[in-house]
Nucleic acid binder design. Structure first.
Lengths: 149, 149
DNA sequence: ATAACTGCAAAACGTTTGCGTGTAT
DNA sequence: ATACACGCAAACGTTTTGCAGTTAT
């Protein structure tokens, strides 16, 4: 066997699909518990990670806060309100004119942040030859080297 | 009195200015301790927050990892290597052509993320009338509302 | 003199994980 | 039948905080 379709997995994914507020893991827990009252937070995290690995959701790390989850996979960016934590979808945030448009709609954009993630030349090189691409392995390496001397 | 220039604050800022690797708080602790061996991690965090409030540094939250600190305030973006954790400066990441340029330099860009942060219309409205703009207040409100029912 | 700051240690926070039990296949 | 997933609770890593003592003004 490999990869079961459990009630908890289905309920978590359904809750995320139904959500329009980019919920946190704990918000999802509350919603899943309406159907399955005994679900634990650990299970929600495990299933969210499973869905992420399957490419069925995106994890949003916006600022220092909690992770937010999004099952809408079409290309879009996000606006995070530092006041109340609301997350709004934004189309084409990289394009010029977005700032003006949001301002016209009442938003106050304090920072527009572009974060590029991937592999630096050195790591890209070793990926080709070694086991760096295996996920568990990669994570270990991140842990080891993330904070050198 | 208000806002003292302590050895710990100066040493922390100096260490960050001297750094070219976008260090974490713990990396900064190690470097500050070369001069002041008894400095604690709590003090480093407190002083980093003080410097941030003064606008003398930027905090980088790149993915799920630790916060990285940057005293270079000129407009630039960052590339975060998911392999080794290296952070590289990138000029004009929002502009077209950046992706191709980085690829030519050996980088593998897996995700380009634009995060907009600020205030949503509702919070922007209440800022004008209430005490939301007072920092301690704002943080409390974020805590309260970040994860609604 | 005194308010701001420190070191220390404990708490807080979001997230992960070990273990024994349960369940989908 | 059995491997996968669960609930629970403890552990984890990063950051914050309470407190009693110290230091810059």
């Amino acid at each position: 066997m490999r990869e079961r379709t459990t009630q908890q997995l289905v309920a978590t994914y359904d809750a995320l699909i139904a959500a329009c507020d980019h919920p946190t893991a704990e918000q999802l827990l509350k919603r899943v518990r309406r159907q399955l009252p005994r679900v634990s937070l650990g299970t929600v995290y495990r299933n969210l990670e499973k869905l992420r690995a399957q490419g069925r959701l995106r994890v949003l790390h916006l600022g220092r806060g909690v992770a937010r989850y999004d099952a809408v996979l079409t290309n879009h960016d996000h606006f995070f309100c530092e006041g109340c934590g609301v997350v709004a979808d934004v189309e084409g945030a990289g394009a010029s004119g977005t700032f003006a448009r949001l301002s016209g709609e009442g938003y106050v954009v304090r920072t527009a942040r572009v974060s590029l993630l991937g592999l630096c030349p050195s790591c890209a090189r070793s990926t080709r030859t070694s086991s760096l691409s295996r996920r568990s392995n990669r994570r270990r390496i991140v842990r080891e080297r993330r904070r050198p001397g």
